[in-house]
């Protein structure tokens, strides 16, 4: 039965445990000097956890995300999914970028279908149904046949989210996906992404330089410091969901994390 297969495809929430062990990564700058982007970074992220990486630019948070995505390789150490080392990109990890990276030659549903087409166990009709379900999940089902350039920035990121969710990855990687949006749109998307996480319980790693955003979204906030990129501190956020970014407790906690961040960036510049 198609229905059963679809039900299984949509209502099965695979998730994974991720571990990063002693990862180092160097970059060579244009003038030939070596910059240590990641210095002996180790951490564990549990199944279904929503973790935010926060830090100033140059702290290696995006580099670590790219290593987990398999787009870059560490110089030493490794990243593992459920105990298996990551050697390249894979369908179990989907990535969302700061730019929406949607394909302008496809319409909205065509974009969501792109990742699904790489899944061999479905036929085209089932793929279409799955794509429609995820567009509905991000409230974009009315725009299935719109062209990308006709959408607003927030709508584009919603479609990008649906495109990342549709192949049902175990882990969702998000690299500052909301930083190019205006404040109003961003606040709506904070609600939407928490809603999606409640429903789908993916392991999510969310990279941002905005502490408030990290506290609003993450169950855990991992603070990075730059030059060399290291994990500095880990905070657990126990505030009830859905969280509002303007909530007082949330503001207090982000204040605390911000002063920790300021403390060691100031110490290093002395």
């Amino acid at each position: 039965m198609i229905q059963e297969k679809l039900h299984e495809e949509i209502h099965n929430y695979p998730t994974a445990k991720l571990s990063v062990e002693h990862v180092c990564k160097d970059f060579i700058t244009n003038n030939g000097s070596v910059v240590r982007a990641l210095d002996d970074v180790s951490l564990t992220i549990n199944e279904g956890e929503f973790v935010c990486f926060v830090g100033p630019s140059g702290c290696g948070k995006s580099t670590l995300l790219n290593i987990i995505a398999g787009l870059e390789k560490p110089d030493s150490g490794m990243a593992l999914i459920d105990g298996t080392p990551i050697t390249g990109p894979g369908r179990d990890r989907m990535m969302m970028f700061q730019e929406h990276a949607l394909f302008p030659w496809l319409d909205v549903i065509g974009n969501v279908m792109f990742g699904l087409k790489q899944k061999p166990n479905l036929n085209d009709k089932e793929r279409l149904e799955v794509a429609k379900y995820y567009l509905y999940l991000v409230k974009m089902d009315r725009f299935a046949h719109a062209n990308i350039h006709e959408l607003s920035g927030g709508m584009r990121q919603r479609v990008a989210l649906a495109r990342s969710l549709a192949p049902n990855p175990k882990i969702l990687l998000m690299d500052e996906p909301f930083s190019a949006l205006d404040a109003m749109t961003r606040e709506r998307l904070y609600g939407d992404i928490q809603d999606v996480w409640e429903k789908r319980r993916k392991t999510i790693i969310f990279v941002t330089h905005n502490v408030r955003e990290a506290v609003c979204l993450g169950s855990r906030v991992i603070l990075f410091s730059p030059h060399p990129g290291r994990v500095r501190e880990k905070f657990t956020v126990n505030l009830p969901r859905p969280r509002n970014i303007n909530n007082h407790d949330l503001a207090d906690l982000s204040q605390e994390i911000t002063s920790a961040l300021k403390g060691y960036t100031a110490a290093e510049s002395d």
């Binding site: 398999g70 990890r93 990535m95 970028f97 730019e99 990276a101 792109f114 990742g115 790489q118 990687l173």
Partner: peptide, 15 residues
């Protein structure tokens, strides 16, 4: 960015 996005979605170099 298009090629990077495609690669994370499991697209092979030829694809």
């Amino acid at each position: 960015i298009y090629a990077r996005a495609a690669r994370t979605m499991g697209s092979t170099p030829l694809h």
